[in-house]
Amino acid sequence: MASLGKNNAKGSGKRTYRGEPGIAMLGATGSGKSTFLGALQIALLKQDKEWRIWCRDPASRRALVEMNTALTSEGKFPLPTTGIDTFDWILGGKRARTERSGRFGSRSVEESIELTLKLTDPTGELARPDQIGLQPREQLVDHVAKSRGILYMFDPIREFSRGDAYEKTYSLLMDLIAAVADDPDFDGRLPHHVAVCVTKFDDPRVFKTAESLRMLVWDEHDPLGFPQVHNSDARSLMHSLSKVSRNGTGEVVPQLLEQYFHADRISYFVTSAVGFMVSKRTRMFDVQDTENVYRIESGESLVRGPVNPINVVEPILWLVEQMALHG
């Protein structure tokens, strides 16, 4: 399993973390895993903090550039992954850390962080129960088991139309448990930190559900007028969205995750890789027209307006933070 090491101090009050935290992405086909990665670069650009992403190896670099360019320049979505794509993306930035000073004092230290994200983006097909025992599935389980963080993409629209999240998650968890059960530190639960991303916030059905639950929070300083769902409400929203799961099992997915992972290592985020539609006329968010994706005659989905990712960086930074905290 990749680990986040501490080394290479750079000057007074500054330390640099280097490590390979290994974040695997799980989610059904079409749940937005690749799009999420494609939006990461633009998401980093649009936030205040000085985070940046880059790559050393050519394959990861090509994937990063292609995913980002397709989404931002052409309004196209990355092609769905057909096997298991692994990218070594290096996330660099600064974080504030509180450090003890003297016997009773403490001081804030700004530290540079540079860590390699071993991002595993498998095809959603590998999560199907009928893949158990097959080589690609074993490879996926191995990748996820070695990762320390998991980005779990929950697609409420797919759950509404297909309702297979429970089935796929359950079978994968069984494989993961089996893979780590012999680990001396195994305490009956999986050790990963899990960022659950409730995707497609811009879809009218997701947005309206959040609105009807009075979960929308409006930041008057947001230049585009985007609303948000606070992370503390994200689990409830996921639960509500899962109630209309096609086969009725979706609503127990949070309990399933909390049963096999440490509940305090799970956090929920309501996300949209492309963000809300911004009106071309007003250049602002329009509460009656939120969806930033549409389908054309060929069947291909395109982005309607500018890409303004919602909660794309945050789950990754949360995972990084958690992994740093937990050594």
Binding site: P204, D289, T290, R304
Partner: peptide, 15 residues
């Protein structure tokens, strides 16, 4: 004329 969660058709820009 407005967001329609049943059809999910994008609303008319002039409502």
């Amino acid at each position: 004329s407005a967001m329609d969660t049943r059809t999910t058709i994008i609303p008319c820009p002039d409502r």
